[in-house]
Amino acid sequence: MIIVNFIFMCIIFGTTFLAIKVGVDAGAPPFFSAGSRFVLAGLLILIWMTWKKKASFSLLLRKEMWLIGLGLTAGTFSLLYWAEQYVSSGTAAILSATAPIVIILLQMVMYRDRVERSKIVGCFISLAGVAVLVLPQVSLGSDRLWLLGCLAILLGQLFYAGGALYSKKVISRFSDISPIAQNAAQMCCGGVMMLVLSVCSERVHLESLLSLQAIGSQMYLIVIGSMVGHTIFYWLVANTNPLFPSMWLYISPFIAVGIGSLLYNEALSIYTIIGAVLTIVGLVVVNTGLLGARKRETFLAKGISPERAAHRSSEG
């Protein structure tokens, strides 16, 4: 069941980038689409959690939820939705996969954290992947809006990194409140921010929202992307460990590139493939040390030394 859910989650997260692309290409305003998606998804989850007596709507009044919502939802997805007007869904997925790299770089610069050499090497590999993906297009005289879209997605990962680091502190501080409820609340708060941004910067035409593509995109993103996908993610965290579900980042970009090419005729160049491979290889290198640390913690918690565990494994 764990493997089935993991595969299902990877497919969901890999296809959401194309769903966003379909919606914005159909004429749906990006900020309004993103804001309404997360407000509705967050409210539905929060209503369910409140009915189960595992949360309260008072969460929406906490400033922490608004700050997390600014980082994880508003800052990240407003830029992603805007960028996908000009960038393919596959490229958007690859650039979005750099989030863990940005988190490490932010820890190094702002918090002066000591980082293992392997993680630094992994960061450089992933950044090389981004360079291979972006720089050839720039040299070929690619559209300026395409380049701005790529930069916007990377800036969004900076928002995500800040939100992720801050949310880690908040989750530990509010350990008596379900992380699922906290995530629902921050989605609502971030969604409201994007709706305000939409009111200030977009013209929302009813006909653009009622097209089959726009409605289908929004329903898929609300129900499958935000509700089902994130519920599976937290279920996997609860039934495995915090690292295993995050491995979707190794798989979903390739799913996004393939689905975009097959179903939406997005261009698939050698630079896209090489950029994707380098970005994911960098992520694997970055997380190798973390995976080893998690395993060691698990063995020690069970009173088994890692050396003894390795000996058991070699014995079959």
Rank of each mutant, 00 (worst) to 15 (best):
L197T: 10
C200V: 14
S172H: 10
C189Q: 09
Q213A: 07
S217M: 09
L209H: 06
V204L: 11
L195G: 00
S175Q: 11
I222G: 06
I180L: 10
L221A: 01
Y220F: 15
D176G: 01
E207W: 10
I215Q: 01
L210A: 13
L209I: 11
K169N: 12
G216L: 00
G191K: 05
V192L: 12
Y220P: 01
V196R: 09
A185K: 03
M193W: 08
R203H: 03
S178Q: 10
M219G: 01
A185Q: 04
L209C: 06
F174K: 14
L209A: 04
G216P: 08
I177P: 01
V170E: 13
Q218S: 10
A185V: 08
C189S: 09
G216T: 01
D176W: 04
I177L: 08
S178K: 11
L209D: 05
G191A: 12
S217G: 06
I180W: 02
L221S: 02
I180R: 00
S198D: 08
L221Q: 07
V204G: 12
M187W: 00
S175C: 09
L197H: 07
G190I: 05
R203I: 07
I171P: 01
S208W: 06
S208Q: 11
R173F: 05
F174M: 15
N183R: 09
I180P: 00
G191S: 09
S208M: 08
C189A: 13
V170P: 03
D176Y: 05
C188Q: 02
I177H: 04
Q213H: 04
S201A: 08
G216N: 02
I177R: 03
V199N: 12
I180Y: 02
S172L: 09
I215L: 08
M193Y: 11
S172V: 10
V223I: 14
S198F: 07
C200S: 14
G190M: 02
Q182G: 11
A214C: 03
L209M: 09
D176E: 11
S198K: 06
N183Y: 01
P179E: 04
V199M: 15
F174D: 15
S201Y: 14
F174C: 13
I180G: 00
S217W: 06
M187R: 00
M219N: 02
A184G: 02
L195P: 01
K169M: 09
V199A: 15
L210G: 06
E207M: 10
S175W: 09
L195F: 02
E207G: 06
F174Y: 15
Y220G: 05
S175N: 13
R203D: 04
M187T: 01
L221M: 06
P179C: 07
A214E: 01
Q182D: 03
K169E: 14
S172K: 13
C188E: 03
I171K: 08
V196H: 06
S208L: 02
S208V: 05
G191W: 02
V196Q: 09
R173G: 03
S201K: 09
C189Y: 09
Q186P: 04
A181W: 12
I177E: 13
H205C: 09
I171R: 10
S201W: 12
S178A: 07
S178M: 07
L197A: 12
S217V: 10
Y220C: 06
A185M: 07
M194Y: 02
V192T: 12
L212A: 15
G190W: 01
S208P: 00
C200G: 13
L197F: 10
Q182M: 15
P179Y: 07
V199E: 14
F174A: 15
S211V: 15
